[in-house]
Design a protein around this nucleic acid. Structure first.
Length: 369
RNA sequence: UCCGUAUCAUUAUUCG
């Protein structure tokens, strides 16, 4: 069993889901660890529906869950449609007497938060059991996700008052709350506190600092923070690019894009969206077309956000025909890409075409927002 | 009783 389970786990990170399933099916006896590994493999690949299917399968075979299994499957319940499953898991937890387990309580807070029932998440959090920084972090992020940035900051302060030491994740949430509400005063406080608590900010934290200063409108501070980063991930570059374009520094954005490539950092979806945003008008058409080829070479042209940014770019640089051609080339659409092409027509006074596109969107089963 | 466990930074559309 041990060997088979270990094998299963290895394959789940290295090989395809098909291989994992084959190994699982060929196992002579499947214990709870094997089931956990199988479901975890599907979750790693983002197949939450399949994971929940296997949960039913397992229940059908009379295998009983344990703590680790419950933790694993709980992350499959992350949207409103899965709330009832999540509640059932909560019942199982209570039945098995696991309600004091802090890992499970953290998972429950996340599950209820992601399913859109913050009230229930708060109830779990408020239980007078053991608390630690991870549980607090989950509770805090529940609020930032809902845009309740003031509450998030208040709760972090309450956590400090209760003597729980913040960690890097606490600071990540704090900085992002400050970024969202453009609170530079609180942001600087958190930046300084992080520097004193954590020896050497890691890439994520450093990047969050850049983001916070940028969102608060402090371009120079963001730039300095970016320059002082010891390591830069692709996200770090993307954040700085976004800050520059948001401040209208399009030339600097292009230069940074060049510097990024010189460093050998591979651009991703976010990178292209930002750089395309820097293509302001007809003068940037050549640059935009160049980016388009690059995007195709990297196989990113099927990403909706990239396609939408391209539609926008062609609209600004070459006119409505180019935008329409790009829109039609896109394999997938969502409400934002439709909005983009509709507004491109409205802004040029082509109201009839805009309305026709609107009804076309409706006929494709996409509801307006 | 050995294998599996919780929180984690950046995107696109609007004289909105």
């Amino acid at each position: 069993h041990l060997v088979m389970n270990a094998l299963l786990n290895m394959y789940s990170t290295l090989r395809s889901l098909e291989d994992v399933r084959k190994i699982f099916i060929n196992m002579p006896e499947r214990n709870i660890v094997a089931w956990t590994a199988l479901i975890d493999a599907f979750l790693q690949h983002g197949c939450k529906a399949d994971a929940l299917q296997y949960l039913r399968h397992m229940q059908g075979e009379g295998v009983f869950p344990d703590i680790v299994f419950l933790l694993t499957i709980m992350s499959a319940c992350s949207e409103a449609a899965t709330l009832s499953q999540g509640r059932q898991l909560h019942v199982s937890i209570l039945e098995m007497g696991y309600e004091f387990d802090i890992f499970l309580r953290t998972a429950l807070v996340n599950m209820y938060g992601n399913c859109g029932v913050a009230e229930d998440a708060c109830k779990v959090f408020a239980q007078p059991f053991e608390q630690n920084v991870v549980l607090w972090n989950s509770f805090i992020s529940l609020h930032t996700q809902l845009g309740l940035d003031d509450d998030a900051l208040q709760h972090s302060n309450r956590m400090l008052l209760e003597g729980v030491l913040p960690d890097r994740v606490t600071f990540l949430h704090g900085l992002s709350a400050c970024a969202n509400k453009s609170d530079i005063v609180e942001g600087i406080k958190i930046h300084i506190l992080a520097l004193s608590v954590i020896s050497g900010l890691d890439v994520m934290l450093g990047t969050s600092v850049v983001y916070m200063y940028g969102k608060c409108g402090h371009l120079e501070a963001a730039w300095q923070a970016f320059l002082h980063l010891h390591d830069r991930s692709v996200v770090s570059w993307n954040v700085m690019l976004g800050v520059l374009t948001q401040h209208g520094e399009f030339l600097k954005a292009f230069n940074l894009f060049g510097a990024m490539q010189k460093q050998g950092v591979l651009p991703d979806v976010f990178t292209f969206v930002h750089v395309l945003e820097a293509c302001l008008g007809p003068a940037a058409l050549t640059e935009g077309e160049h980016l388009h080829t690059y995007i195709v070479e990297m196989g990113l042209e099927s990403e909706v956000a990239v396609g939408t940014a391209l539609v926008n770019m062609y609209g600004k640089c070459s006119g409505i025909e180019g935008a329409c051609r790009m829109f039609e080339e896109m394999p997938k659409h969502n409400v934002v890409s439709w909005n983009t092409i509709i507004m491109a027509h409205v802004q040029r006074g082509k109201h009839r075409d805009a309305f026709q596109l609107f009804t076309e969107m409706h006929s494709k089963g996409i509801s307006p927002d």
